[in-house]
Design a binder for these strands. Structure first.
Lengths: 270, 270
DNA sequence: ATGGAAGATAAAAAATGTTCGTTTATGCGC
DNA sequence: GCGCATAAACGAACATTTTTTATCTTCCAT
């Protein structure tokens, strides 16, 4: 089988979106459907994807059904936030990534970071980051939560207590107007609290839809967060709360990024 | 610009972008494609990049390829052993499964067991068993080993020390004639020792090819094992050792199985 | 002069595009 | 619901383009 520049990217897209269509890839790469079909056939033969009419999907193990749906929710906003957030994460530091589809998107964006120590209680993130040889991945122990591959419970908390992170990147289930960070699962709350306690700096990544959700358990409030990454301007009340407690708000899509164009002439830095 | 200056920068670009194309580098350095190709070829020869048509990518995929190949090694023997072993594992008990493709095969066979608590330091097993809602899965913490998704190191050992298992099912890299159970990775040895220490009963699953391998680190010897599952009659010396220490040997394929027909049609599916 | 590095050329290899017949989904009429 | 027609997607074979490899030449610094 020949190698292609496209194949790794196809897998990446499949991981992010849960599926790929021939049309989507044709447009993305600017090649003919036949070429994409060849790629997909080869990827399917090597077991990396599963072929379906019109495209391909991840070789799913039935677990990920509800999970995939959630992952597709607000996908583009999540990728934008993730990209922005990843740009704020320095190389050569220790980072914790917790459970959540947003943090998974961030993990994907960290694939080209260097010298990181990433600790996570999310088995999906471990899987994603195992593709980056420049990152040392540590998984916390814990009870496996089937719904999302998270590791929760006493064991997770206990493991986290043994570390000290330069940076924690956390996601959440919901956000209230008055700055409370909320979660559905009381078990996960304990874990998130432990994470914040052990971290020098805290990033929160949450798309705007989180403001429209309600969840029962409070993890923390925005005053404990250093930078809050989101995709739309939060309500005035929330902004005020952040200003008062010195929490910086970073908005994805706010400042247009010349990233692509600059690539060719970008700096040396080795 | 000298070659010595280009190569490190090419690697840097590859790290940042995940890939490099000949065209991109031609423009970047202002040299001919020929020169870039020479650089890429040399970088590929020294294993720093992987050459693809039109450019090069990071050699991240190589890790998984090695693993997939290993998984397919002796596949049918592994499935036979796994099936036999799974039949000896009772319902409603606590089991530890360690790293290894054989134990992964066993996990697959446990998909219809009930009331199990499975603790594992193998992320692949966690993924496999998440498909069975009747099993509570606990993952130990640890450093992620990319080569096989195993969790090793101090954290893993420490987590294991907190449990007490009814049964440990372990695999290994190699077996010596005089009953030593061996492994390639010294880190994993510590983990395996901890597992045995915490377990009421110990199952060892290893296909016959393990007798032909050599590995540097000793996990334990067969006297510490209660039942040894394999696919071919071990050497006389090994049988004698087992008999002397009361280690039972269970051979897959020994007693004809009425499920033979089903076996053929059951594919790998991972 | 000489040796290493970059450039040039042509033949070989690989990837991609094109076309066509076949298979597979989907929608419609009954 | 069931069969049938239609359109889309698929895979194979061949033509075309692009990339690679091998070989030789040129340039520059020692």
């Amino acid at each position: 089988m020949g190698q292609t520049l496209r194949k790794p990217e196809i897998i990446g897209i499949a991981r992010r979106e849960g599926k790929v269509t021939v049309d989507m890839l044709v447009e993305h790469f600017g090649v003919t459907p036949q070429t994409i079909r060849r790629d997909l056939t080869e990827l399917a033969n090597s077991g990396q994807l599963e072929r379906v009419h019109g495209g391909a999907v991840l070789p799913s193990t039935t677990v990920n059904i509800g999970y995939n749906e959630r992952r597709e929710l607000n996908q583009s906003a999540k990728v934008d936030i993730a990209r922005l957030c990843a740009r704020h994460i320095p190389h050569d530091c220790s980072v914790f990534l917790n459970i959540g589809t947003t943090t998974e998107a961030i993990a994907t964006e960290l694939l080209h970071h260097q010298g990181l120590l990433v600790v996570t209680n999310n088995t999906n993130i471990a899987l994603i980051l195992s593709a980056n040889p420049n990152v040392e991945v540590v998984v916390t122990g814990g009870n496996l939560r089937r719904s999302d591959g998270g590791l929760v419970g006493e064991l997770a908390k206990q493991t986290i207590a043994q570390f000290r992170f330069d940076l924690a990147v956390i996601g959440c289930s919901a956000l209230s107007e008055d700055g409370d960070i909320l979660d559905f699962d009381i078990q996960e709350v304990g874990v998130s609290k432990a994470i914040i306690r052990q971290s020098q700096a805290v990033f929160l990544a949450a798309d705007a839809s989180k403001f429209e959700r309600r969840a029962p358990a409070k993890i923390a409030d925005l005053s404990e967060v250093d930078v809050f990454f989101t995709d739309k301007t939060p309500s005035g009340r929330c902004r005020e709360f952040c200003k008062m407690h010195g929490t910086e708000i970073e908005m994805a899509g706010e400042s247009p990024q010349p990233h692509q164009a600059r690539r060719a002439s970008s700096h040396v830095a080795t």
